[in-house]
Amino acid sequence: MTEPKTAIAIQGLEKVYPGGFRALQPIDLEIYQGEIFALLGPNGAGKTTLINAVCGIVNLSAGQITVNGFDHCTQYRQARSCIGLVPQELTTDAFETVWNTVSFSRGLFGKSANPALIESILKRLSLWDKKDNQIRMLSGGMKRRVMIAKALSHEPQVLFLDEPTAGVDVELRKSMWDQVHELRETGVTIILTTHYIEEAEEMADRVGVIHKGKLLLVEEKNKLMKQLGKKEMVFELQHPLETVPPELCGKNISLAAGGSQLVFTYDTLQEDNGVTDVLDCLKAHHILYRDISTRQSSLEEIFVDLVRAS
């Protein structure tokens, strides 16, 4: 298997704001070409600051960043040319038309006019029929797509999507996910921050969790879910219980749904994970159940556990 090429390499990145607030602790991170990387973290964790640092919107306090091998300070032109950014806020020139604002973005990045490309981007994002509308006339979802069109207008190799589906309805969110997948198919590296863990679960190849400016972990999504994911076995009881029977204490069992469910939490990776033991115990003590179901913990639960533990 060939080694993945690095799109973004961050070393010892720190950001301390005037006044002493440390937004980013020293961060080391590598993002590979062509992957979808999801950066998760609660509000104020430092996700946007990290993105802004890479894009040159905030000054670094320390550290080094390279984008496709170009140093973001000494070779800022080449580095920034590779990057497209869709910021979290819907910041647009309200009185400009869609066509003009997208063309403006392309020009800013040093690219000559390419009406055919702009047309294809607008069509792909279902904005073609709005191309002559002023942005202030558009809905929130459309404005969000205009931001994406602006970021794509200069054909970036790396695309930052900072909360791309915040405030967007379910249907549009799903269509945006499809568009992100399509972009990845064209070889674009995508770095995504989101509050919707299901979004990361649906799209990401790798996940990074950031909290209080510190990168807690970076892992392949599937591996992370396997490593940290717990499984639950839920027994629907025939006769509700008031307390967990003493025979079952210490076996990671709890009561739920007003005593009508017994929930057994176990680790699928452990050889002796106690499943047989629990089943035997229930049978021996005549605890009858109508149904059994199992459930894998979601990325959201993993994320919450990690943040709490930190």
Partner: peptide, 8 residues
Amino acid sequence: YELLSAPL
């Protein structure tokens, strides 16, 4: 943001 992130 666009101005600051552009290669200018």
